[in-house]
Amino acid sequence: MTLVDLGTIRRLVSVTVDDVEHRVPEDATILDVLDRAGCDTPRLCQAPNLTPVNACRVCVVEVEGSRPLVPSCARRVEDGMVVRTDTERVAHSRRMVLELLGSANDMSQAGDDVARWSVEYGADPERYGPVGPPAAAGERGNRHPGHHAEPDGETRATVAQPVTVDNDLYVRDYARCILCYKCVEACGTDAQNTFAIAVAGRGFDATISTEFAVPLPESACVYCGNCIGVCPTGALKSVAEHELREAGEWDPEDETVTSTICSFCGVGCTLDLHVQHNTIVNVTSPHDHSVTHGHLCIKGRFGFQHVQNY
């Protein structure tokens, strides 16, 4: 039996994971328990500084008494809960979520964890047939809900489309967007309260969009970059990173991270400066930082670009 300490003192409840009993605070999620127990649980839409939306379903587990699998990221523990992560059903659903995403999205910049999970769970996106033609710019946002052209199945539909570059600070590469809702949450009540972007459309044709898909400079966006900070797939990235990648000069091997305090105002946000070849390529803030929770404003996030570009 392991004792899981999650910080604050709470009533402890008993949860069994794969036959091992854990005593955990009553407000923990199942994922909290799995993390402390050392399980390598895949996750995509979950982030420690955002409200769980449990949309991707890659973190599912079996919970005794529940017919469908349960998203571990969102479900709170209950006393006596019996959880299984080691079953074929769990492995199948995780594999299929990764496989379905891989079949529809460009996951190549989704990070090492995703690449590792995809191999471990055996995701095979190629079995759905050859990739269909990409959408023209703006086309996916114009599809009417409830209507689609009947496919012949010869190729597989994807969300491929051109990168949207409509401002100097960051690009939106929605061919990589897995609709994890993180950017919407960060732009909304979880951090920025700006509500410049939301999910529009329905089903497979849903997109992240401004009103009437207007360019960002016409929208409410204040370029805090908090959406970029939470995007798990590289769909949102700074122009600096985008241009380096396009030029083939993106070099994560060379990257170093230096922590500093933002000097633009008196709040004193911690900044992590990501530097490649003596150039600042990105600025982030640690999500467990008590002031920022990982979120910044335009000055901290992009001030370097103002300095370097203008």
Binding site: M96, L100, P145, P151, R156, I178, R202
Partner: peptide, 20 residues
């Protein structure tokens, strides 16, 4: 495929692959 809200991956992408 048309009526999926699009929120979760199994249904959003799964209904497309089923139809194909």
């Amino acid at each position: 495929r048309d009526e999926s809200c699009g929120q979760c991956v199994p249904c959003r992408v799964g209904t497309v692959r089923q139809e194909e």
